[in-house]
Amino acid sequence: MRLFFFFSVLFVQSLVAQNTVSFEEGTTSPEATLLDVEWMTGHWKGEAFGGITEEIWSPPLGGSMMFSFKLVVNGMVNFYELGHIKEVGGTLLLQLKHFGGDLKGWEEKNDTVDFKLVKLEPNKVFFDDFTLERISDQEINLYVVVGDDEGNQEEVQFNYKRQ
């Protein structure tokens, strides 16, 4: 019975996160540069969370690629994210901060949400529970594991088209 429970848990976890992987403590991030994610550069729009999503990614400059994210629901900004992917110690680190529609920060002043690089594939970049996928020059997917106040987690897909 325990073996059945164990495999049931593994099966459910695989359904929850099919396109993301978690960074395991004690491992190191692979070597990478901004050239590995330069294809993210541009203006992207899609739909998620019951609204319109927009991301704008700058080209590599100064060791980072800056991005902004906006979610608009019923004609009103729900929240923003501001962040970057930066080169650190021969690898990449994705960092971001959240802001409400009124630009009040969610994280403490000096805190960021950090995603360590886990692995690279030709058209996919896997950060800790956050994956960037290049479908074509005109389409990308982002997959993010999000949680709620009860500790439940699910993988959310954002499909974007180049603007």
Rank of each mutant, 00 (worst) to 15 (best):
Q157E: 11
W106D: 06
Q138M: 10
K109Q: 05
I85E: 01
G26D: 03
V73E: 04
T33K: 13
L132I: 10
W106F: 15
N19K: 15
V113F: 14
F130D: 01
Q138T: 13
L93H: 04
V125I: 15
E154V: 12
F79Q: 02
F69K: 00
W57Q: 02
E24F: 03
E87K: 11
V146L: 14
G63A: 07
A48V: 13
D102E: 08
I140K: 10
Q18V: 13
I140E: 01
T33Y: 05
Q95T: 14
F127W: 08
S8M: 12
D111F: 11
G51N: 02
R162V: 11
F126S: 07
P60C: 07
R2W: 05
G46W: 09
L103Q: 07
V21W: 04
T33Q: 07
K109M: 11
E150K: 12
R2T: 15
S8E: 03
N110H: 11
V145W: 00
K97H: 07
I140A: 03
T131K: 03
I52W: 00
N78R: 14
G63M: 08
L3K: 15
F7Q: 03
D129G: 04
T41H: 02
F130S: 00
N141Q: 08
V77Y: 02
T91Y: 08
F49G: 05
M66K: 15
I135R: 12
F69W: 03
F5C: 10
F158V: 01
K45N: 10
S8Y: 10
F23G: 06
P59K: 15
F11I: 12
L94W: 13
F23L: 10
E108C: 09
E31P: 05
L15F: 09
E121F: 03
M40Q: 06
